[in-house]
Design a protein around this nucleic acid. Structure first.
Lengths: 129, 129
DNA sequence: AATTTAAATGTTATAATATAACACTATGTA
DNA sequence: TACATAGTGTTATATTATAACATTTAAATT
């Protein structure tokens, strides 16, 4: 099991505690009291955390959330639901979905090693508003 | 059928002719001879073209490609394959996949109105290299 | 323990992506 | 005509992300 470095741990902790995806500069702002001063320090930690699967990037939002799936070592098969009203993001952990997508082959015969899926809609709360 | 405005048409044409996804500032550079001078002119056209489904944004690349699916009026269900070596991007048009994803419901009972899926791997050419 | 190597850090500067705000113009339609 | 809607042009600025280089820490090897 990979041991996080100081900066990686600081940045993982703040993302992990956040109820919503965090953007890089919001992370930076929040960790300045811990001595992390420059964007690059944040981005380097983010890159590593994504690489080892501790966090995921929500591409459509340029934001990061902690992985909700304890067994997820590497970010190879990710799916999220995103509420377009309140921006709540949830990681989807559905074995039928992941099986279907991991086995998917297109006509061109391309073999995929990774996918990322983002669903958009209204969450329950926002639907009833 | 929606009629494109002058700027929208110029920007659609250049994306449509491109064999690969185009980034906003690359588009800007290429249309400056046509009188489009500012980023905002490009982004406004891009926004509209995405909205009406003439182009799609490849979120992981911040780049845009013309829709390959003539019947696609709105970008509600998009899937792409992306070669991580040569960066070739292909729109996937597979009815089994789109049916599966359009009918997908998560545990939280959230009903989705849209999705975007990006597969990553090596295309045939790059596999044999 | 000393050496060496890889990974991480700190820092400044800058590149790349995207939007705010405001004035104006074209187009459709009541 | 008058009104509403969509599109344009422009300047300035916000946001997201990386390049380059020097230094430090941690880990692996001798």
């Amino acid at each position: 099991m990979y041991t996080l470095s100081k900066n990686q741990q600081i940045i993982f902790d703040i993302i992990d505690k956040s109820p919503e995806p965090m953007k890089a500069y919001s992370i930076l702002f929040n960790v300045q009291k811990k001595g992390i001063k420059a964007p690059l320090q944040v981005y380097r930690a983010l890159d590593k955390l994504v690489e080892i699967g501790k966090i995921h990037k929500i591409e459509s939002r340029n934001a990061f959330i902690a992985c909700q799936n304890s067994s997820c070592q590497v970010s190879k098969a990710t799916a999220f639901s995103i509420c377009e009203s309140c921006e709540k993001v949830t990681e989807i952990n559905n074995s039928s979905l992941s099986k279907y997508l991991s086995n998917f082959k297109d006509k061109a015969g391309m073999k995929y090693s990774k996918y990322n899926l983002e669903f958009f809609g209204l969450c329950k709360k926002c639907t009833t508003k």
